[in-house]
Design a protein around this nucleic acid. Structure first.
Length: 955
DNA sequence: GCATCATCTTA
DNA sequence: GTAAGATGATGCG
């Protein structure tokens, strides 16, 4: 066998994601897999076994239906020995002889594949893996996205950004992230991984005592076998000896495990083109299917088209339920094939039938398709609906052709929405959706109120989030793959990506309809899955907390907060002139012109040119110029830089940006992400209104720009020390509980307790240190962290921590209990019973484990605080007065973790402040109780309420 | 054009 | 020491 020099490193920029993928099928895998999975009783009347033929055909059909490839090949091994056999006597030495029931099927499989016009590849002396490896790389170089269809994990070594391994039998899919998730190592490390573990059936000896756990660990630490061997002295005892014993065999093992990617005897990619003529090889196909007695296939050859379906725009796709391998074993495949029925509604009669159907069910799935992810600028393009799994309806209302001309037939948007409105607003018919807050905005733009109390039956994104805040991503494609084992069409698949992405209204209607129908269908299926999967408490969290909060957030986003644009513009100008002055000063002080905003250039000037001491390097090897480092240096340039940075930050992040994102009414609409953080907190983006400056006087000027309209006031209500109160509650610590009950300044009280002094005698410095330790506790601190915070030595910090724990033994016990729980059960939980999974706490690598332990200590505190503010939002929303004219006298506008910001009619400020304060302080005794949680909270909740013309004065 | 890093803002 | 997001610089292609 000859090979050519490997080509240059594969990159992925040139990959064309718009064209269908190039598909390489590992025929030998499906042959064996389906032979063992399907009943061997599947035979023709002549006694010919057909189970492996049937199984392989199903795998191929599934790939064809799913990807509509233009290029494809199926590769098989042959009986003949390969170079690997020559290298190793034991290579595949123990493989039993192929059963005759399978062997007899092989010629028919080959014949069938050829009849279908699919390139069939096998060659004596060459393994299918190597053919596939070579073609995959070549296709990749030519710009194809490649799918290798196999269940052989060894193939995962070929995975890169453009090559995925996918098993059509169980729908498992390994892209780069999937490989990492499954094996814990990068695709490029798979060869070493397999080599370390060994595989008796492939004749790979491996290293004694190393299984998948150790292989993953060693490769994570050392990256490669070569590097392990280079550092062999760092290994200990038995393991080191095992490596030394294996040194000779490792090289051979690695060769055996490596799939060849540069054979020079493979056909060209272009020659692996599939026929486009539906009549291709008709006679040959009829002959082979007759021989195999595959009745459905013969029938479809005789009726290749379904004119009835095409004329009214309906699409039918056969869809194998192969996702459940039990089905394969228990039922005949023909029977387990079901039909996915997706309909496009383009006339009034069909639409009325759909309306009648939606009217008659207890709930349905709904999804809107639009031109934009941003609801403020999005236009509705169509709506899809599903009432039962595998059936869905798409109603296009705004589709256009490439020239922007409205296409027909297509129903009128206004007519459609007018008829749907009563249904969509009727809370007796439940709505199921994926991220319904978005659809609510879209429909609200069309004057349809989806976000009404009790109108949402389930939001599958939020369901996924209450199930697990940590491990999963909550978008529909990932949920479908993870929970339903179904691969869905992604938005990028239909609309492209990057600069070339088109808006959904320009997507070809048939493609768009299939995509939209799938969204509704999958959402409904996810609902059915989550309905069974969620525990009682998870159901309660979803129904009584997350869904009501989502509806409140919808309203907060929609209302937006008023800003003083002129004021911001003026600030921008002032900052700008000051920044320019500072730049000039800095250049003079440095003796050269440089970019003040470049940490790299600044570091070089400070530490190389001016030779200032205190230079520390970051992990990438450049000097750190963080505020912490600069604060210790006495030099005029440093002072200039710090002032420059603070103003540049304020200008670029806040004053410039906020003025730009305000709408025509000068209101700013953030988006709140409700299914993102591990602890249950919200996050805010575009713009982030949860990090508006407050600590410095200049920064606070930005808060002054958040104002109330004429006749109204801003109210800010925030929980005081909520996380420390939670710590007091969870730890049941008598001293902390007493301090909160008596209403003391908690940091002062802590200092007094630690130092054994009267409260009145605690100095500011002593209070500052106590505050640092209190916050440190919430963050799972180490002596190292506290030392850094307080400028102590590590010993001093440890002494201080010891002293604290001697005064607060129950807090110490609580911290240890949390750590143990995280370790033993793999999760910690919040006051409302939300589980926060902590997988890395069990990691043997201290670099991974220690941060995870700190996160595990913080999670119940931060997460319970998040529960409380969500309860508060629900409680306050229920008591805020509304006026009959629809204009609320009070609006909740912002949530900043422990603070709620409102805009309130001036004449009601006093009474509404009181309502808010009471509702927030009583969330346990009142709101949580009503919703089904009995919690005896150990300390009072204190809420501080402020009123002002702007956010700064209110806070 | 896109990803990563360093930095800085909040609770 | 926890949890987030935005920005400009920089490097890659």
């Amino acid at each position: 066998m000859t090979t050519k020099t490997p080509t240059a490193l594969l990159t992925t920029d040139h990959i064309n994601k718009e064209q269908p993928p190039f598909i390489l099928v590992d025929g030998s895998y499906y042959l064996f897999r389906t032979f063992h999975a399907l009943p061997v009783e599947m035979k023709t009347s002549q006694g010919l076994h057909t189970n492996a033929v049937r199984g392989t055909l199903n795998a191929i059909n599934k790939l064809m239906n799913r990807y509509q490839p233009t290029h494809m090949a199926v590769a098989f091994d042959t009986k003949a020995p390969t170079f690997r056999h020559q290298l190793s006597e034991i290579y595949k030495g123990d493989r039993p002889e192929m059963p005759s029931e399978l062997a007899e099927q092989i010629p028919y499989i080959h014949q069938m594949i050829q009849a279908l016009g699919i390139p069939l590849l096998f060659q004596e002396g060459v393994e299918a893996d190597d053919i596939i490896g070579t073609l995959a790389h070549q296709a990749c170089e030519q710009g194809y996205h490649v799918i290798i269809s196999t269940g052989d994990k060894d193939m995962c070594q070929l995975v890169n950004e453009a090559i995925v391994v996918e098993n059509s039998f169980d729908d498992k899919r390994f892209d780069v992230a999937g490989v990492k998730e499954k094996f814990g190592v990068e695709p490029r490390q798979i060869i070493d991984y397999l080599t370390l573990m060994g595989d008796a059936s492939d004749g790979i000896k491996g290293v004694a005592g190393i299984g998948k756990v150790t292989a993953e660990k060693l490769l994570t630490e050392y990256d490669s076998i070569d590097n392990i061997l280079a550092n062999i002295d760092k290994l200990k005892g038995k393991q080191k000896q095992n490596f030394l014993d294996s040194i000779d065999s490792i090289k051979l093992d690695k060769t055996l495990a490596t799939i060849i990617t540069n054979l020079d005897i493979v056909p060209s990619i272009e020659s692996l083109r599939l026929p486009t003529d539906p009549a291709f090889n008709l006679d040959a196909r009829r002959a082979i299917f007759s021989k195999l007695e595959f009745k459905n296939e013969i029938a479809s050859l005789n009726h290749p088209f379904h004119p009835a379906n095409q004329s009214n725009g309906n699409q039918q796709t056969t869809f194998d339920t192969n996702t459940n391998s039990l089905d394969l074993q228990n039922k005949s495949l023909q029977k387990s094939s079901i039909t996915k029925q997706y309909h496009t509604i383009t006339n009034q009669a069909d639409f009325e039938q759909l309306l009648a159907k939606l009217q008659s069910v207890p709930y349905f799935a709904v999804d809107t398709e639009t031109t934009d992810l941003n609801w403020q600028t999005a236009n509705i393009v169509g709506l899809s609906f599903a009432t039962t799994a595998h059936e869905a309806f798409y109603v296009p209302v705004n589709h256009v052709d490439e020239l922007g001309q409205r296409i027909s037939p297509q129903l009128d948007k206004t007519d459609v929405l007018r008829q749907l409105k009563p249904l969509l607003e009727n809370p007796n018919i439940g709505k199921i959706g994926q991220h319904l807050k978005y659809d609510s905005h879209i429909l609200a733009n069309e004057n349809i109120a989806l976000a009404q109390p009790h109108n949402w039956h389930m939001d599958t994104m939020l369901a996924s989030y209450v199930l697990n805040t940590v491990a999963t991503r909550h978008n529909m494609d990932d949920l479908a793959r993870h929970y339903l084992h179904v691969l869905t069409t992604s938005f990028e698949d239909v609309a492209g990506k990057g600069a070339k992405q088109i808006t959904f209204d320009k997507v070809n209607l048939a493609t768009a309809s299939h995509y939209a129908c799938e969204d509704a269908d999958i959402t409904l299926q996810l609902f059915e899955f989550f309905a069974k999967k969620l525990s009682e408490n998870e159901h309660n969290l979803l129904k009584h907390i997350e869904i009501p909060v989502a509806q409140i957030l919808y309203q907060m986003e929609k209302d937006g907060i008023l800003i003083d644009k002129q004021f911001l513009t003026k600030l921008s100008q002032e900052f700008d002139s000051k920044i320019q002055q500072l730049e000039k000063t800095a250049h003079a002080q440095a003796g050269e012109v440089f970019n003040l905003a470049s940490p790299k250039q600044l570091g070089e000037i400070l530490f190389d040119k001016l030779k200032l001491s205190g230079g520390k390097k970051t992990k990438t090897g450049q000097y750190s110029t963080s505020e912490q480092v600069l604060a210790k240096i006495e030099h005029e340039l440093v002072d200039t830089v710090l002032e420059y940075r603070s103003l540049a930050k304020l200008k670029s992040t806040y004053t410039d940006t906020l003025a730009n994102v305000a709408d025509d009414n000068n209101r700013v609409h953030t988006s709140y992400h409700q299914a993102l953080t591990s602890t249950g907190r919200l996050s805010s983006t575009d713009p982030n209104l949860q990090n508006i400056p407050i600590r410095t006087d200049t920064g606070r000027l930005i808060r002054e720009a958040f104002i109330a309209p004429k006749g109204r006031k801003i109210i800010s209500a925030d929980y005081s020390q909520i996380e420390l109160r939670l710590m007091a509650h969870f730890a049941k610590d008598p001293a902390l509980i007493r301090a909160f009950n008596e209403g003391h300044d908690i940091h002062k009280a802590t200092a007094s307790e630690i130092l054994g002094k009267d409260l009145a005698d605690v100095s500011n410095e002593e209070r500052r240190q106590a505050k640092a330790i209190n916050f440190g506790l919430l963050y799972g601190m180490s002596q190292f962290g506290l030392a850094k915070q307080l400028g102590f030595s590590r010993e001093q910090a440890q002494d201080y921590i010891n002293l604290y724990f001697s005064r607060y033994p129950t807090v110490k016990a609580y911290m240890q209990t949390t750590r143990n729980l995280a370790h033993e059960q793999g999760y910690v939980d919040t006051i409302l019973g939300r589980k926060i999974y902590t997988p890395d706490v069990q990691n043997s690598n201290a670099m991974v484990r220690q941060p995870a332990e700190r996160a595990a200590i913080n999670a119940p505190l931060q997460g319970s605080a998040a529960d409380i503010i969500k309860l508060a939002m629900i409680a306050v929303n229920d008591v805020l007065p509304t006026t009959p004219n629809g204009q609320e006298s009070a609006k909740m506008l912002l949530q900043v973790h422990d603070e709620l910001v409102f805009e309130v009619d001036e004449d009601q400020v006093e009474s509404i402040s009181q309502l808010i304060k009471t509702a927030m302080q009583n969330v346990f005794s009142d709101t949580a109780k009503k919703l089904g949680w009995q919690i005896d909270f150990a300390v009072p909740l204190l809420v501080e309420v402020g009123v002002g013309d702007n956010w700064d004065t209110a806070h």
